[in-house]
Write a protein that binds this DNA or RNA. Sequence first.
DNA 1: CTAGCTTAACTTGTCGCCAAGTGCTTGTGT
DNA 2: ACACAAGCACTTGGCGACAAGTTAAGCTAG
Lengths: 243, 243
Amino acid sequence: MEVVVISIDEESRIIDDMMDRIVKRKLSPGEKLPSENELADEYRVPRMTVRNALTKFEERGYIYSKQGKGRYVKEASIPIQLSLTGRISFTDKMNQMGYDLMTSNIYCEKMDYEMEVYQKLNADEHDSVYRIGRLRYINGEPIAIHNSYVNESSFPEIKEDGPEIESMFAYYRKQGFSDFTSRKTMLSITFPTSKEQQLLSCKSMVPLIKVESDCIDIESKQVLEHTKILYRSDKFKYDITMD
Amino acid sequence: MEVVVISIDEESRIIDDMMDRIVKRKLSPGEKLPSENELADEYRVPRMTVRNALTKFEERGYIYSKQGKGRYVKEASIPIQLSLTGRISFTDKMNQMGYDLMTSNIYCEKMDYEMEVYQKLNADEHDSVYRIGRLRYINGEPIAIHNSYVNESSFPEIKEDGPEIESMFAYYRKQGFSDFTSRKTMLSITFPTSKEQQLLSCKSMVPLIKVESDCIDIESKQVLEHTKILYRSDKFKYDITMD
DNA sequence: CTAGCTTAACTTGTCGCCAAGTGCTTGTGT
DNA sequence: ACACAAGCACTTGGCGACAAGTTAAGCTAG
Protein backbone atom coordinates (compact mmCIF):
# COMPACT_ATOMS: atom_id res chain seq x y z
CA MET A 1 0.00 0.00 0.00
CA GLU A 2 1.23 3.41 -0.92
CA VAL A 3 1.20 6.16 1.64
CA VAL A 4 0.28 9.52 0.19
CA VAL A 5 1.75 12.43 2.12
CA ILE A 6 -0.19 15.61 1.68
CA SER A 7 2.34 18.35 2.06
CA ILE A 8 1.02 21.23 4.09
CA ASP A 9 3.06 24.34 3.52
CA GLU A 10 5.38 24.65 6.52
CA GLU A 11 5.24 28.42 6.51
CA SER A 12 1.46 28.47 6.69
CA ARG A 13 1.53 25.97 9.53
CA ILE A 14 3.79 28.26 11.51
CA ILE A 15 1.58 31.28 10.82
CA ASP A 16 -1.50 29.28 11.87
CA ASP A 17 0.24 28.35 15.10
CA MET A 18 1.39 31.91 15.86
CA MET A 19 -2.11 33.19 15.19
CA ASP A 20 -3.45 30.54 17.52
CA ARG A 21 -1.03 31.51 20.27
CA ILE A 22 -2.11 35.11 19.97
CA VAL A 23 -5.86 34.49 20.03
CA LYS A 24 -5.44 31.96 22.85
CA ARG A 25 -3.42 34.59 24.72
CA LYS A 26 -0.37 32.37 25.06
CA LEU A 27 1.23 35.45 23.53
CA SER A 28 -0.09 38.81 24.66
CA PRO A 29 0.34 42.20 22.99
CA GLY A 30 3.78 43.65 23.64
CA GLU A 31 5.21 40.26 24.48
CA LYS A 32 8.33 38.97 22.77
CA LEU A 33 8.06 36.01 20.44
CA PRO A 34 10.54 33.14 20.71
CA SER A 35 13.58 33.82 18.55
CA GLU A 36 13.86 32.52 15.01
CA ASN A 37 16.34 29.87 16.11
CA GLU A 38 14.14 28.65 18.96
CA LEU A 39 11.15 28.36 16.64
CA ALA A 40 13.26 26.62 14.03
CA ASP A 41 14.24 23.99 16.60
CA GLU A 42 10.68 23.67 17.80
CA TYR A 43 9.16 23.12 14.37
CA ARG A 44 12.19 21.20 13.06
CA VAL A 45 12.58 23.43 10.02
CA PRO A 46 15.42 25.61 8.75
CA ARG A 47 15.58 29.10 10.19
CA MET A 48 14.77 30.61 6.81
CA THR A 49 11.37 28.92 6.81
CA VAL A 50 10.54 30.40 10.20
CA ARG A 51 11.90 33.72 9.02
CA ASN A 52 9.73 33.77 5.90
CA ALA A 53 6.67 32.86 7.92
CA LEU A 54 7.31 35.59 10.47
CA THR A 55 8.01 38.16 7.76
CA LYS A 56 4.64 37.39 6.17
CA PHE A 57 2.99 37.58 9.54
CA GLU A 58 4.65 40.92 10.17
CA GLU A 59 3.44 42.28 6.86
CA ARG A 60 -0.08 41.36 7.76
CA GLY A 61 0.37 43.68 10.70
CA TYR A 62 0.25 41.31 13.68
CA ILE A 63 3.83 41.63 14.89
CA TYR A 64 6.80 43.93 14.47
CA SER A 65 10.51 43.25 14.67
CA LYS A 66 13.61 45.04 15.87
CA GLN A 67 17.01 44.02 14.67
CA GLY A 68 19.13 42.77 17.51
CA LYS A 69 16.17 42.59 19.89
CA GLY A 70 13.43 40.33 18.66
CA ARG A 71 9.86 40.21 17.44
CA TYR A 72 6.92 41.52 19.40
CA VAL A 73 3.16 41.13 19.29
CA LYS A 74 1.41 44.32 18.22
CA GLU A 75 -1.38 45.87 20.21
CA ALA A 76 -4.64 44.57 18.76
CA SER A 77 -6.70 47.50 17.52
CA ILE A 78 -10.35 47.26 18.36
CA PRO A 79 -12.17 47.25 15.04
CA ILE A 80 -14.18 50.33 14.30
CA GLN A 81 -17.73 49.39 13.41
CA LEU A 82 -18.59 51.17 10.23
CA SER A 83 -22.00 51.15 8.68
CA LEU A 84 -21.83 50.90 4.93
CA THR A 85 -25.56 50.98 4.63
CA GLY A 86 -26.68 54.48 5.49
CA ARG A 87 -26.71 57.36 3.08
CA ILE A 88 -25.15 59.80 5.53
CA SER A 89 -21.66 61.15 4.91
CA PHE A 90 -18.50 59.62 6.25
CA THR A 91 -17.92 62.59 8.53
CA ASP A 92 -21.37 62.35 10.04
CA LYS A 93 -21.14 58.58 10.43
CA MET A 94 -17.95 58.82 12.42
CA ASN A 95 -19.08 61.71 14.59
CA GLN A 96 -22.31 59.86 15.27
CA MET A 97 -20.31 56.88 16.51
CA GLY A 98 -18.31 59.14 18.76
CA TYR A 99 -14.96 58.72 17.06
CA ASP A 100 -12.37 61.46 17.03
CA LEU A 101 -12.26 62.07 13.29
CA MET A 102 -9.73 64.29 11.59
CA THR A 103 -9.29 65.00 7.90
CA SER A 104 -6.35 66.36 5.97
CA ASN A 105 -6.38 67.28 2.30
CA ILE A 106 -3.53 65.53 0.57
CA TYR A 107 -3.96 66.52 -3.05
CA CYS A 108 -6.19 68.27 -5.55
CA GLU A 109 -4.95 67.79 -9.05
CA LYS A 110 -6.08 67.35 -12.61
CA MET A 111 -6.17 63.66 -13.31
CA ASP A 112 -4.93 61.90 -16.43
CA TYR A 113 -7.62 60.50 -18.69
CA GLU A 114 -9.08 57.24 -17.46
CA MET A 115 -12.00 55.76 -19.29
CA GLU A 116 -13.73 54.20 -16.30
CA VAL A 117 -13.84 57.36 -14.22
CA TYR A 118 -14.70 59.67 -17.10
CA GLN A 119 -17.55 57.42 -18.18
CA LYS A 120 -19.04 57.40 -14.73
CA LEU A 121 -18.95 61.19 -14.61
CA ASN A 122 -20.50 61.42 -18.07
CA ALA A 123 -17.41 63.46 -18.91
CA ASP A 124 -16.05 64.16 -22.35
CA GLU A 125 -12.49 63.04 -23.04
CA HIS A 126 -11.42 66.70 -23.23
CA ASP A 127 -13.01 67.69 -19.93
CA SER A 128 -10.78 68.42 -16.98
CA VAL A 129 -11.47 66.10 -14.08
CA TYR A 130 -9.99 66.86 -10.70
CA ARG A 131 -9.04 64.29 -8.14
CA ILE A 132 -9.42 65.49 -4.58
CA GLY A 133 -7.79 63.30 -1.98
CA ARG A 134 -8.35 63.46 1.74
CA LEU A 135 -6.77 61.35 4.41
CA ARG A 136 -9.05 60.34 7.28
CA TYR A 137 -7.67 59.84 10.75
CA ILE A 138 -9.37 58.27 13.73
CA ASN A 139 -7.71 58.84 17.10
CA GLY A 140 -4.72 60.18 15.22
CA GLU A 141 -4.30 57.05 13.11
CA PRO A 142 -4.70 57.27 9.34
CA ILE A 143 -7.41 54.83 8.37
CA ALA A 144 -8.79 55.74 4.98
CA ILE A 145 -8.02 57.58 1.75
CA HIS A 146 -11.02 59.34 0.32
CA ASN A 147 -10.82 60.21 -3.38
CA SER A 148 -13.41 62.37 -5.06
CA TYR A 149 -13.43 62.82 -8.81
CA VAL A 150 -15.10 66.01 -9.92
CA ASN A 151 -15.67 67.41 -13.39
CA GLU A 152 -14.44 70.99 -13.75
CA SER A 153 -17.27 71.76 -16.15
CA SER A 154 -19.72 71.08 -13.31
CA PHE A 155 -17.74 72.97 -10.68
CA PRO A 156 -15.55 75.59 -12.42
CA GLU A 157 -13.92 76.71 -9.17
CA ILE A 158 -12.97 73.21 -8.07
CA LYS A 159 -9.28 73.76 -8.69
CA GLU A 160 -9.19 76.60 -6.18
CA ASP A 161 -11.78 75.24 -3.75
CA GLY A 162 -10.55 71.65 -3.76
CA PRO A 163 -7.64 71.95 -1.36
CA GLU A 164 -9.97 73.34 1.32
CA ILE A 165 -12.88 70.94 1.10
CA GLU A 166 -13.37 68.66 4.06
CA SER A 167 -16.86 67.43 3.33
CA MET A 168 -17.97 67.24 -0.28
CA PHE A 169 -21.61 67.23 0.77
CA ALA A 170 -21.19 70.57 2.51
CA TYR A 171 -19.54 71.93 -0.64
CA TYR A 172 -22.35 70.77 -2.89
CA ARG A 173 -24.92 72.34 -0.59
CA LYS A 174 -23.06 75.63 -0.76
CA GLN A 175 -23.19 75.32 -4.55
CA GLY A 176 -26.96 75.06 -4.42
CA PHE A 177 -27.57 71.33 -4.46
CA SER A 178 -29.62 69.85 -1.68
CA ASP A 179 -30.78 66.28 -2.20
CA PHE A 180 -28.41 63.51 -3.18
CA THR A 181 -28.56 59.88 -4.18
CA SER A 182 -26.19 57.32 -5.63
CA ARG A 183 -26.47 54.69 -8.30
CA LYS A 184 -24.31 51.76 -7.47
CA THR A 185 -21.84 51.03 -4.70
CA MET A 186 -19.19 48.42 -5.32
CA LEU A 187 -16.85 46.85 -2.81
CA SER A 188 -13.61 45.11 -3.66
CA ILE A 189 -10.25 44.29 -2.12
CA THR A 190 -6.86 45.62 -3.19
CA PHE A 191 -3.38 45.95 -1.77
CA PRO A 192 -1.80 49.32 -1.10
CA THR A 193 0.64 50.83 -3.57
CA SER A 194 3.82 52.16 -1.99
CA LYS A 195 2.30 55.65 -1.88
CA GLU A 196 -0.81 54.37 -0.18
CA GLN A 197 1.36 52.47 2.29
CA GLN A 198 3.08 55.71 3.20
CA LEU A 199 -0.15 57.65 3.54
CA LEU A 200 -1.84 54.99 5.63
CA SER A 201 1.41 54.00 7.35
CA CYS A 202 0.68 50.35 6.83
CA LYS A 203 2.59 47.36 5.55
CA SER A 204 2.29 46.10 1.99
CA MET A 205 0.17 43.09 2.90
CA VAL A 206 -2.57 44.92 4.75
CA PRO A 207 -5.58 44.57 2.43
CA LEU A 208 -7.55 47.66 1.61
CA ILE A 209 -11.29 47.72 1.14
CA LYS A 210 -12.12 49.76 -1.92
CA VAL A 211 -15.58 51.25 -2.01
CA GLU A 212 -16.58 52.92 -5.26
CA SER A 213 -19.69 54.99 -5.56
CA ASP A 214 -21.00 58.26 -6.88
CA CYS A 215 -23.11 61.19 -5.84
CA ILE A 216 -26.03 62.39 -7.92
CA ASP A 217 -28.20 65.44 -7.49
CA ILE A 218 -31.74 64.15 -7.32
CA GLU A 219 -33.35 67.23 -8.86
CA SER A 220 -31.14 67.62 -11.94
CA LYS A 221 -30.00 63.98 -12.10
CA GLN A 222 -26.52 65.38 -12.59
CA VAL A 223 -23.54 63.26 -11.55
CA LEU A 224 -21.70 65.46 -9.08
CA GLU A 225 -18.82 63.18 -8.26
CA HIS A 226 -17.38 59.72 -8.42
CA THR A 227 -15.81 58.49 -5.18
CA LYS A 228 -13.24 55.89 -4.41
CA ILE A 229 -12.51 55.23 -0.75
CA LEU A 230 -9.73 52.97 0.48
CA TYR A 231 -10.19 51.68 4.02
CA ARG A 232 -7.54 49.84 6.01
CA SER A 233 -9.20 46.45 6.42
CA ASP A 234 -7.45 45.78 9.71
CA LYS A 235 -9.09 48.75 11.37
CA PHE A 236 -12.70 48.11 10.47
CA LYS A 237 -15.64 45.82 10.74
CA TYR A 238 -18.48 46.69 8.43
CA ASP A 239 -22.11 46.49 9.23
CA ILE A 240 -23.88 45.62 5.99
CA THR A 241 -27.22 44.78 7.54
CA MET A 242 -30.25 45.28 5.33
CA ASP A 243 -33.52 46.63 6.54
CA MET B 1 21.63 72.06 3.78
CA GLU B 2 20.69 68.56 4.75
CA VAL B 3 19.12 66.33 2.20
CA VAL B 4 16.47 64.07 3.65
CA VAL B 5 16.03 60.90 1.69
CA ILE B 6 12.66 59.35 2.17
CA SER B 7 13.28 55.67 1.74
CA ILE B 8 10.58 54.03 -0.29
CA ASP B 9 10.62 50.30 0.23
CA GLU B 10 12.36 48.86 -2.85
CA GLU B 11 10.20 45.74 -2.85
CA SER B 12 6.99 47.75 -2.93
CA ARG B 13 8.33 49.86 -5.76
CA ILE B 14 8.99 46.73 -7.80
CA ILE B 15 5.52 45.37 -7.07
CA ASP B 16 3.98 48.73 -8.03
CA ASP B 17 5.86 48.65 -11.31
CA MET B 18 4.91 45.04 -12.10
CA MET B 19 1.29 45.82 -11.34
CA ASP B 20 1.55 48.82 -13.62
CA ARG B 21 3.01 46.74 -16.45
CA ILE B 22 0.16 44.29 -16.14
CA VAL B 23 -2.66 46.84 -16.08
CA LYS B 24 -1.00 48.80 -18.89
CA ARG B 25 -0.76 45.55 -20.84
CA LYS B 26 2.99 45.78 -21.25
CA LEU B 27 2.71 42.30 -19.77
CA SER B 28 -0.22 40.18 -20.86
CA PRO B 29 -1.67 37.07 -19.21
CA GLY B 30 0.42 34.01 -19.98
CA GLU B 31 3.45 36.11 -20.83
CA LYS B 32 6.81 35.49 -19.19
CA LEU B 33 8.22 38.07 -16.83
CA PRO B 34 11.84 39.15 -17.16
CA SER B 35 14.07 36.89 -15.08
CA GLU B 36 15.11 37.78 -11.56
CA ASN B 37 18.60 38.70 -12.71
CA GLU B 38 17.33 40.94 -15.51
CA LEU B 39 15.03 42.78 -13.11
CA ALA B 40 17.79 43.05 -10.54
CA ASP B 41 19.98 44.77 -13.14
CA GLU B 42 17.12 46.98 -14.26
CA TYR B 43 16.21 48.23 -10.78
CA ARG B 44 19.82 48.18 -9.56
CA VAL B 45 19.00 46.07 -6.53
CA PRO B 46 20.25 42.67 -5.33
CA ARG B 47 18.49 39.66 -6.79
CA MET B 48 17.02 38.76 -3.40
CA THR B 49 15.09 42.03 -3.30
CA VAL B 50 13.53 41.27 -6.67
CA ARG B 51 12.93 37.73 -5.52
CA ASN B 52 11.12 38.80 -2.36
CA ALA B 53 9.01 41.25 -4.30
CA LEU B 54 8.02 38.64 -6.88
CA THR B 55 7.27 36.07 -4.20
CA LYS B 56 4.91 38.51 -2.53
CA PHE B 57 3.34 39.29 -5.84
CA GLU B 58 2.91 35.60 -6.52
CA GLU B 59 1.25 35.07 -3.17
CA ARG B 60 -1.26 37.75 -3.98
CA GLY B 61 -2.19 35.60 -6.94
CA TYR B 62 -1.08 37.71 -9.89
CA ILE B 63 1.74 35.54 -11.21
CA TYR B 64 2.99 31.98 -10.89
CA SER B 65 6.48 30.55 -11.17
CA LYS B 66 8.06 27.39 -12.52
CA GLN B 67 11.50 26.38 -11.42
CA GLY B 68 13.89 26.30 -14.34
CA LYS B 69 11.46 28.17 -16.60
CA GLY B 70 10.43 31.51 -15.22
CA ARG B 71 7.53 33.53 -13.90
CA TYR B 72 4.31 34.04 -15.81
CA VAL B 73 1.36 36.39 -15.59
CA LYS B 74 -1.79 34.62 -14.49
CA GLU B 75 -5.02 34.84 -16.42
CA ALA B 76 -7.03 37.65 -14.84
CA SER B 77 -10.26 36.20 -13.56
CA ILE B 78 -13.24 38.36 -14.33
CA PRO B 79 -14.70 39.27 -10.97
CA ILE B 80 -18.04 37.74 -10.19
CA GLN B 81 -20.50 40.43 -9.27
CA LEU B 82 -22.15 39.37 -6.07
CA SER B 83 -24.96 41.21 -4.46
CA LEU B 84 -24.61 41.33 -0.73
CA THR B 85 -27.79 43.25 -0.36
CA GLY B 86 -30.63 40.93 -1.24
CA ARG B 87 -32.22 38.51 1.15
CA ILE B 88 -32.21 35.62 -1.31
CA SER B 89 -30.01 32.59 -0.73
CA PHE B 90 -26.53 32.19 -2.10
CA THR B 91 -27.65 29.38 -4.36
CA ASP B 92 -30.45 31.43 -5.84
CA LYS B 93 -28.24 34.50 -6.25
CA MET B 94 -25.72 32.57 -8.28
CA ASN B 95 -28.24 30.76 -10.42
CA GLN B 96 -29.97 34.05 -11.07
CA MET B 97 -26.71 35.50 -12.35
CA GLY B 98 -26.26 32.51 -14.62
CA TYR B 99 -23.19 31.09 -12.94
CA ASP B 100 -22.49 27.37 -12.92
CA LEU B 101 -22.67 26.79 -9.19
CA MET B 102 -21.70 23.55 -7.50
CA THR B 103 -21.67 22.71 -3.82
CA SER B 104 -19.89 19.97 -1.93
CA ASN B 105 -20.38 19.19 1.74
CA ILE B 106 -17.01 19.12 3.45
CA TYR B 107 -17.87 18.54 7.07
CA CYS B 108 -20.68 18.23 9.59
CA GLU B 109 -19.34 17.97 13.09
CA LYS B 110 -20.05 18.91 16.65
CA MET B 111 -18.13 22.08 17.36
CA ASP B 112 -16.11 22.87 20.47
CA TYR B 113 -17.59 25.49 22.74
CA GLU B 114 -17.08 29.03 21.52
CA MET B 115 -18.73 31.83 23.38
CA GLU B 116 -19.38 34.12 20.41
CA VAL B 117 -21.18 31.51 18.33
CA TYR B 118 -23.12 30.00 21.22
CA GLN B 119 -24.33 33.40 22.33
CA LYS B 120 -25.59 34.25 18.89
CA LEU B 121 -27.54 31.01 18.76
CA ASN B 122 -28.96 31.64 22.25
CA ALA B 123 -27.46 28.24 23.05
CA ASP B 124 -26.66 26.93 26.49
CA GLU B 125 -23.05 25.94 27.13
CA HIS B 126 -24.11 22.29 27.32
CA ASP B 127 -26.02 22.31 24.04
CA SER B 128 -24.54 20.51 21.06
CA VAL B 129 -23.91 22.86 18.19
CA TYR B 130 -23.07 21.45 14.77
CA ARG B 131 -20.90 23.12 12.20
CA ILE B 132 -21.90 22.31 8.67
CA GLY B 133 -19.39 23.29 6.04
CA ARG B 134 -19.98 23.48 2.33
CA LEU B 135 -17.55 24.42 -0.37
CA ARG B 136 -18.97 26.50 -3.22
CA TYR B 137 -17.59 26.17 -6.71
CA ILE B 138 -18.20 28.41 -9.67
CA ASN B 139 -17.17 27.08 -13.06
CA GLY B 140 -15.32 24.33 -11.21
CA GLU B 141 -13.28 26.74 -9.12
CA PRO B 142 -13.67 26.75 -5.34
CA ILE B 143 -14.63 30.27 -4.34
CA ALA B 144 -16.25 30.23 -0.92
CA ILE B 145 -16.54 28.25 2.29
CA HIS B 146 -20.00 28.38 3.77
CA ASN B 147 -20.26 27.52 7.45
CA SER B 148 -23.61 27.07 9.16
CA TYR B 149 -23.81 26.69 12.93
CA VAL B 150 -26.94 24.89 14.04
CA ASN B 151 -28.14 24.01 17.53
CA GLU B 152 -29.02 20.34 17.86
CA SER B 153 -31.81 21.19 20.30
CA SER B 154 -33.54 23.09 17.47
CA PHE B 155 -32.90 20.42 14.82
CA PRO B 156 -32.45 17.04 16.55
CA GLU B 157 -31.68 15.24 13.30
CA ILE B 158 -29.02 17.69 12.17
CA LYS B 159 -26.19 15.23 12.77
CA GLU B 160 -27.67 12.80 10.26
CA ASP B 161 -29.16 15.34 7.87
CA GLY B 162 -26.21 17.73 7.84
CA PRO B 163 -23.91 15.92 5.41
CA GLU B 164 -26.64 15.98 2.77
CA ILE B 165 -27.82 19.58 3.01
CA GLU B 166 -27.04 21.79 0.05
CA SER B 167 -29.31 24.69 0.80
CA MET B 168 -30.09 25.45 4.43
CA PHE B 169 -33.19 27.40 3.41
CA ALA B 170 -34.61 24.37 1.67
CA TYR B 171 -33.92 22.33 4.78
CA TYR B 172 -35.66 24.80 7.07
CA ARG B 173 -38.69 24.86 4.81
CA LYS B 174 -38.89 21.08 4.96
CA GLN B 175 -38.80 21.40 8.74
CA GLY B 176 -41.86 23.65 8.66
CA PHE B 177 -40.34 27.11 8.68
CA SER B 178 -41.31 29.46 5.92
CA ASP B 179 -40.35 33.12 6.47
CA PHE B 180 -36.86 34.18 7.42
CA THR B 181 -35.04 37.31 8.43
CA SER B 182 -31.64 38.18 9.84
CA ARG B 183 -30.46 40.55 12.53
CA LYS B 184 -27.06 41.85 11.69
CA THR B 185 -24.61 41.17 8.88
CA MET B 186 -20.97 41.94 9.48
CA LEU B 187 -18.18 42.03 6.93
CA SER B 188 -14.49 41.76 7.75
CA ILE B 189 -11.25 40.66 6.15
CA THR B 190 -9.08 37.70 7.17
CA PHE B 191 -6.34 35.58 5.69
CA PRO B 192 -6.83 31.88 5.03
CA THR B 193 -5.56 29.28 7.47
CA SER B 194 -3.60 26.47 5.85
CA LYS B 195 -6.75 24.33 5.80
CA GLU B 196 -8.70 27.08 4.11
CA GLN B 197 -5.89 27.53 1.61
CA GLN B 198 -6.21 23.88 0.69
CA LEU B 199 -9.98 23.99 0.41
CA LEU B 200 -10.00 27.15 -1.68
CA SER B 201 -6.76 26.23 -3.46
CA CYS B 202 -5.40 29.70 -2.95
CA LYS B 203 -2.17 31.20 -1.71
CA SER B 204 -1.69 32.41 1.84
CA MET B 205 -1.86 36.08 0.93
CA VAL B 206 -5.21 36.02 -0.85
CA PRO B 207 -7.50 37.92 1.52
CA LEU B 208 -10.82 36.37 2.39
CA ILE B 209 -14.00 38.32 2.91
CA LYS B 210 -15.76 37.03 5.99
CA VAL B 211 -19.48 37.65 6.11
CA GLU B 212 -21.18 36.74 9.37
CA SER B 213 -24.90 36.67 9.70
CA ASP B 214 -27.76 34.61 11.06
CA CYS B 215 -31.13 33.27 10.04
CA ILE B 216 -34.22 33.82 12.14
CA ASP B 217 -37.69 32.41 11.76
CA ILE B 218 -40.01 35.40 11.60
CA GLU B 219 -42.99 33.64 13.16
CA SER B 220 -41.29 32.15 16.23
CA LYS B 221 -38.38 34.59 16.35
CA GLN B 222 -36.21 31.52 16.82
CA VAL B 223 -32.55 31.73 15.76
CA LEU B 224 -32.20 28.89 13.26
CA GLU B 225 -28.55 29.28 12.41
CA HIS B 226 -25.49 31.42 12.57
CA THR B 227 -23.53 31.63 9.31
CA LYS B 228 -19.96 32.46 8.51
CA ILE B 229 -19.03 32.65 4.84
CA LEU B 230 -15.49 33.06 3.57
CA TYR B 231 -15.23 34.41 0.02
CA ARG B 232 -12.04 34.57 -1.99
CA SER B 233 -11.63 38.31 -2.40
CA ASP B 234 -9.83 37.94 -5.72
CA LYS B 235 -12.83 36.31 -7.37
CA PHE B 236 -15.51 38.80 -6.42
CA LYS B 237 -16.77 42.32 -6.64
CA TYR B 238 -19.59 43.09 -4.28
CA ASP B 239 -22.58 45.19 -5.03
CA ILE B 240 -23.55 46.86 -1.79
CA THR B 241 -25.94 49.37 -3.30
CA MET B 242 -28.70 50.61 -1.04
CA ASP B 243 -32.24 51.26 -2.17
C1' DC C 1 33.87 50.83 45.37
C1' DT C 2 32.35 52.60 41.21
C1' DA C 3 32.29 54.28 36.40
C1' DG C 4 33.16 53.10 32.01
C1' DC C 5 34.78 50.27 28.41
C1' DT C 6 35.40 45.76 26.27
C1' DT C 7 33.62 41.57 25.00
C1' DA C 8 30.67 37.84 24.18
C1' DA C 9 26.28 35.96 23.43
C1' DC C 10 22.29 36.71 21.88
C1' DT C 11 18.94 38.93 18.45
C1' DT C 12 17.30 39.99 13.29
C1' DG C 13 18.97 41.29 8.46
C1' DT C 14 21.55 40.49 3.97
C1' DC C 15 23.86 38.35 0.56
C1' DG C 16 25.79 34.99 -2.39
C1' DC C 17 26.78 30.48 -3.64
C1' DC C 18 25.16 26.19 -5.14
C1' DA C 19 21.25 22.84 -5.93
C1' DA C 20 17.48 21.63 -8.88
C1' DG C 21 14.79 21.96 -12.98
C1' DT C 22 14.27 23.11 -18.00
C1' DG C 23 15.23 23.34 -22.77
C1' DC C 24 18.15 24.37 -26.54
C1' DT C 25 22.31 23.38 -28.91
C1' DT C 26 25.69 20.52 -30.38
C1' DG C 27 28.14 16.45 -31.39
C1' DT C 28 28.33 11.67 -32.39
C1' DG C 29 26.98 7.13 -33.96
C1' DT C 30 24.23 4.63 -37.02
C1' DA D 1 20.73 12.64 -42.90
C1' DC D 2 18.56 11.67 -38.77
C1' DA D 3 18.04 10.07 -33.86
C1' DC D 4 19.49 10.51 -29.51
C1' DA D 5 22.19 11.72 -25.71
C1' DA D 6 25.37 14.76 -23.36
C1' DG D 7 26.36 19.24 -22.03
C1' DC D 8 25.63 23.99 -21.27
C1' DA D 9 23.25 28.13 -20.36
C1' DC D 10 19.55 29.68 -18.56
C1' DT D 11 15.74 29.65 -15.08
C1' DT D 12 13.90 29.52 -9.91
C1' DG D 13 14.65 27.46 -5.10
C1' DG D 14 17.06 26.72 -0.73
C1' DC D 15 20.41 27.17 2.67
C1' DG D 16 24.23 28.67 5.32
C1' DA D 17 27.66 31.93 6.52
C1' DC D 18 28.34 36.40 7.84
C1' DA D 19 26.89 41.42 8.86
C1' DA D 20 24.66 44.51 11.92
C1' DG D 21 22.35 45.77 16.07
C1' DT D 22 21.38 45.07 21.18
C1' DT D 23 22.19 43.90 25.80
C1' DA D 24 24.29 42.50 29.82
C1' DA D 25 28.05 40.82 32.25
C1' DG D 26 32.65 41.29 33.70
C1' DC D 27 37.01 43.36 33.92
C1' DT D 28 39.92 47.23 34.57
C1' DA D 29 41.33 51.71 35.88
C1' DG D 30 40.69 55.62 38.70
